[in-house]
Simulated assay, not measured.
Amino acid sequence: MSASQPPFEPSVTVFMLVKTAPEWLGFPVDERFQLLREQFTPILRKHEGRVRLRFFDVEFYSTRVTDVWLWDAVDHHAYQLLVEDLRETPFWDRYFQIVEILTGVENAYARNYNREVFTV
C-alpha cells in the first residue's frame, strides 16, 4: 500500500495455497524478481486500495504447498477482478500451481451474532 492510499477494512480474506513449479525454480533468483516486477507488480498496482497481498513461505514445513498468498479485499468483486488479471499471466498454474483457495471473512462468527470478537 502506498502512502497515498488510505488503509481499507477488508470484507473478504483469501488464502491461496500455491506450489512453485520447476519452471519457476529453474530461473536464476535475479530473473525471478525481474518477472515479479514486470508481470506481478503491475497487477498489484492496478488493484491497489481494493486488494492487498501478503506472501508466506511454507516450504520449510509442507510438501503439498510451498507458499500461501494471503489476499485481503474490500469485497468479492475486487478479488475476482484480481484473479481474472492473474489468470492472464504465467504466474497462474505455470510458474505456480494453484493448489487450493480458501476464502473467509474475519470474525464473521461474532458479527453474525452481534457479539464482541473473542480474542486474547
Rank of each mutant, 00 (worst) to 15 (best):
E84N: 02
V18I: 12
Y79Q: 02
A78P: 00
L86T: 00
E23H: 06
R45S: 06
P42N: 13
R87I: 00
Q5C: 09
V65A: 09
T89C: 00
Y61V: 03
E23G: 03
D75E: 00
V74H: 00
L81Y: 02
L86W: 03
F118S: 09
D67G: 03
A110L: 13
I101P: 05
V12N: 11
V14H: 00
P7L: 11
W71E: 01
S4P: 07
D72E: 04
L53D: 05
F60L: 08
V83A: 00
P10W: 05
V99Q: 14
E84D: 03
M1L: 15
L17M: 14
R111E: 02
L82R: 02
E88W: 01
F56D: 12
A108C: 05
T20V: 08
A108R: 09
Y109M: 09
R32M: 08
L81C: 01
R94C: 06
P22T: 05
G26Q: 11
P42A: 14
E9Y: 08
F118P: 02
S11C: 10
A110E: 08
Q39H: 14
D72N: 01
D57F: 11
R52G: 12
D67E: 03
E100A: 11
D57C: 09
I43D: 09
L102W: 07
L86H: 01
I101S: 04
R37Q: 14
F40Y: 15
M1D: 05
V74M: 01
Q80N: 03
Q34T: 15
M1S: 15
T20S: 07
P7K: 11
E38S: 15
Y61W: 01
L53T: 09
E88F: 07
V58I: 11
P7G: 05
E31A: 02
I43L: 12
D30E: 12
V29Y: 13
W24Y: 09
L53H: 09
V83Y: 02
F118Y: 15
H47V: 11
F60T: 13
T13L: 10
M16V: 08
T89K: 04
Q97P: 06
E23D: 15
L82S: 02
R45K: 12
Q80H: 01
V74D: 02
D57T: 06
D93L: 04
I43G: 02
F33S: 14
V120P: 07
S4A: 13
E38Y: 12
V51Y: 01
T66C: 03
W69T: 04
V68M: 06
I43R: 04
D57K: 07
F27M: 15
A73W: 00
V83G: 00
H47W: 07
T119K: 11
D93K: 04
G26N: 14
E116Q: 09
V58F: 03
